[in-house]
Design a protein around this nucleic acid. Structure first.
Lengths: 200, 200
DNA sequence: ACTTGATTAGTACCTGGTTCTAAGAAGAGG
DNA sequence: CCTCTTCTTAGAACCAGGTACTAATCAAGT
């Protein structure tokens, strides 16, 4: 049984741990046919932490992710906002926003950006989307930065509706447009007879 | 120093572990002022695994999530699907889908469910939303289960468009409706001159 | 022959537990 | 008062999965 040269073993070891971080040194000795000390020396050289540390790290990462989720009440970063007038937000299409096969952004993310912005631009305690009429003008791909611009077109009196138009661009190109009707509460508390409002 | 009754201590212990799963029994003895054996008996009674098991579980969950992400190309669980005809999906509104203050679902999640379903119901390799005309009929709250029903209304020849209507209900009540126009590729590969398609 | 790098063996020790046995303390019921 | 039960604490043995360190062996290289 000819053993592998050290470098190759290191390569294998890294790969094995990468695609199964739950593996113990004991398991690795069986698979690589070297002593457990060798495995440990290898991990040291490669700077790979022990099993428990690996799991702890993974757990911490996922924990932090969960805790930072509540922050994203707005999809995309708002970079300009004039309440009841206009707003701009930017949203980068990342891996998690695209269809894995085609790398084309899933529409609800573009909608979410536009919708969030349309709601944010309304200066009120509670603002909910009532209707939306949207059009996906061209597909947006992985890595592209989508810039949404919202304009408040009218704020009608009695029933507290606002019309908001949103145009999203990648560079100069229009990729999405939407007309939103947003219901807003009274500044005081919130309306009687607001039956057709909705979330966003 | 009067110690807490057992039930209260159990309450506290559960809460403490819940909002810091990285805590050791040793730490807990200091905070609850009981012996480490008591802590361990308590964990046993409550069925709370040891620190390492907790971390391992978290790590496994996040690992599985990452690996299963490509699966959730559809938002909501599809419970019935007749390709090119109709489909039904169910989607439970959870904490992460609502505005934290009002507990009302954010519209883009309802849209995402409907849109996903509209795309899924089209029997084609590539199907992308072109336009959508949607209406949020009433707000949906935390904990409600949203059932979306999609009907394919027409499939037009040359340009490969399909019209899909989606109605979402909570119980008997209509909460959302949308008319989608979906572009589809040719079954073979995918068309030349498809310039207005989009993601969903 | 001497040195160096790679590998293996073995021991002591660590953390964060489990499992089991045993012994006090505290209150309830007789 | 005694006894029974529940709760709590103590302690020892053991375990997984390591770290840290020492030492021995082997195979080349020069």
């Amino acid at each position: 049984m000819v053993r592998l040269p050290k470098k190759e073993r290191h390569q294998q070891l890294m790969k094995m741990i990468e695609d199964n971080p739950f593996i113990t040194d004991q398991d690795l000795t069986r698979m690589l046919r070297v002593s457990i000390q060798t495995i440990r020396l290898d991990r040291m050289e490669l700077g790979i932490p022990e099993l428990r540390e690996r799991l702890k790290l993974m757990a911490e990462q996922s924990y932090d992710q969960v805790r930072s989720l509540p922050l994203d009440e707005v999809i995309g970063d708002i970079i300009d906002l004039q309440l009841d007038r206009s707003g701009i937000s930017i949203f980068e299409i990342r891996q998690e926003h695209v269809f894995s096969r085609t790398k084309i952004a899933r529409g609800h993310h573009l909608f979410a950006q536009a919708n969030s912005l349309a709601v944010a631009v309304i200066d009120d305690e509670i603002a909910l989307t009532a209707t939306a009429d949207i059009r996906f003008v061209r597909q947006v791909k992985l890595g592209e930065k989508c810039i949404a611009k919202a304009y408040v077109r009218s704020i009608s009196g009695e029933r507290h509706k606002a019309k908001v138009e949103v145009f999203s661009y990648v560079g100069e190109e229009l990729v999405f447009q939407g007309h939103f009707i947003i219901f807003r509460s009274k500044t005081e508390s919130g309306g009687e007879g607001v039956e057709h409002e909705d979330s966003h």
